[in-house]
Amino acid sequence: MSLLEVKGLRRDYGALRAVDDVSFELEAGTILGFIGPNGAGKSTTMRILATLDTPNAGQVTLDGHSLVDTPDKVRPLIGYMPDRYGTYDDVTVLEFLDFFARAYGLQGRERARRVASVMEFTGLLPLQEKLTSALSKGMKQRVALGRTLLHDPKLLILDEPADGLDPRARIELRELLRALADQGKAVLISSHILTELAEICDTCAIIEQGRLLATGKVADILAQATGTAVAELMVRLYPGEEGEAVWARAERLLLEQPRVKQVAREGEALRVRLEHEGGAAGGWVDESAARVLAALVGAGVPVCAFSHRERNLEDAFMHVTKGRVA
C-alpha cells in the first residue's frame, strides 16, 4: 500500500472549482513532481494535503489514517513548506529551530539532539548563531526546510522550494531532497522549473484547471498521451574529404531503417526520431539503436559519436497540457 493515497479530491470556492476529482498515490522513498501552470490547483491541493484546507469531496489517506476524518493523527507525519515561508528577524538560526522544536513537543536532550541533527543535515551548523534576517535566500530556504524536518515526518510537501535560488543553492537543494528520499521519506514537490524536477523526481503528476491530466514517468506519460512511444538518437559524423556526400548517404540510410520517422541535421550531428506503436514497454529503444548503428557502420558511414536522448519533462508537459482553458 502507498504511503499517501488521494482519491477523488475536489475543492470549490463558490462557483470556482479549484481542484476537480484529483487522484494519485505516492510511495515512501519516492519524489513526485507536481506540475502545472499558475492557477492550476497545485497549491490548493498541497494545502489540503497539509490539513490547512478542507476538501468538498474526496478522501486522502496517509499511512492508513484518513486526513479528512482524523487530521490530528496525520499532522505529526507531515512536513509542509509553503512557497513563501518567512523567518523571524530577531532570532538566530539555532533559536528559530529550537522554538519550532518546542512547538512540535520535543523536549530536553531529544530536542537538542534533533535540532543539531537537522542543522548538520542542512549545512546550517556554521550559521547557527547568525540572525535569520542576515541570511541569503538560499540559506533561508535551508532554515525553512530544517524547520519542516524537525519532527521527522514521513511525508514532505514542498511548494516551490527552489523559487528564487541561485544555481548552486538549487543544486544543493536537489541533493538534500534526494538524500531525504533515500532515507525513506515521500516527497511531493511543485516547481515551475521543469528541468529541476526532471533531475530529481521519480514520477510526476501534471495538473491543469484543477484536473489531473497525467501521472507516471515521463516516457510513460508521453506514450499514454499519444499511444506511441518516442525516442531520439544523436549521431555525430566525421565527413572527412567526402563532405556533404556523407551526410546525404547517412540520412538516406537512416530513413530506410524500421521505426525511424524523421532525421534532421543539427550542426555536426543528425537527430534521429524513433517511434514505436503501442506504448513504452519493452527494450525497443535499445533494439532500434543497435540496428541503426549496425546499419551505419556496415555501410561505411564514419560515425564518431552515438547517443540516446531521453525525452524530457518539458516535452511531456507541453504535449499533455496544450494550453487548455476552462
Score class of each variant (00 low, 15 high):
residue 1 M to E: 15
residue 4 L to F: 01
residue 10 R to F: 04
residue 11 R to K: 15
residue 15 A to N: 13
residue 35 I to T: 03
residue 41 G to Y: 01
residue 43 S to K: 03
residue 51 T to C: 05
residue 54 T to A: 00
residue 54 T to K: 03
residue 67 L to T: 02
residue 70 T to C: 09
residue 73 K to T: 11
residue 79 G to T: 03
residue 90 D to T: 07
residue 90 D to M: 12
residue 104 Y to S: 12
residue 104 Y to H: 15
residue 105 G to K: 14
residue 108 G to A: 08
residue 113 R to D: 10
residue 119 M to H: 07
residue 121 F to T: 08
residue 122 T to K: 01
residue 123 G to E: 11
residue 137 K to D: 02
residue 149 L to D: 00
residue 149 L to V: 02
residue 157 I to N: 09
residue 162 A to T: 11
residue 163 D to S: 09
residue 165 L to D: 04
residue 168 R to F: 13
residue 170 R to G: 00
residue 171 I to N: 14
residue 182 D to T: 07
residue 183 Q to C: 11
residue 194 L to D: 06
residue 196 E to T: 04
residue 199 E to Q: 13
residue 208 E to D: 12
residue 213 L to S: 05
residue 214 A to M: 04
residue 216 G to K: 06
residue 225 A to H: 15
residue 227 G to W: 12
residue 233 L to R: 01
residue 233 L to I: 05
residue 234 M to A: 13
residue 238 Y to G: 10
residue 248 A to N: 15
residue 256 E to A: 15
residue 258 P to L: 12
residue 263 V to T: 11
residue 265 R to A: 10
residue 267 G to W: 12
residue 268 E to V: 13
residue 270 L to H: 02
residue 271 R to V: 14
residue 273 R to W: 15
residue 277 E to G: 14
residue 280 A to N: 07
residue 285 V to D: 04
residue 285 V to L: 02
residue 304 C to E: 14
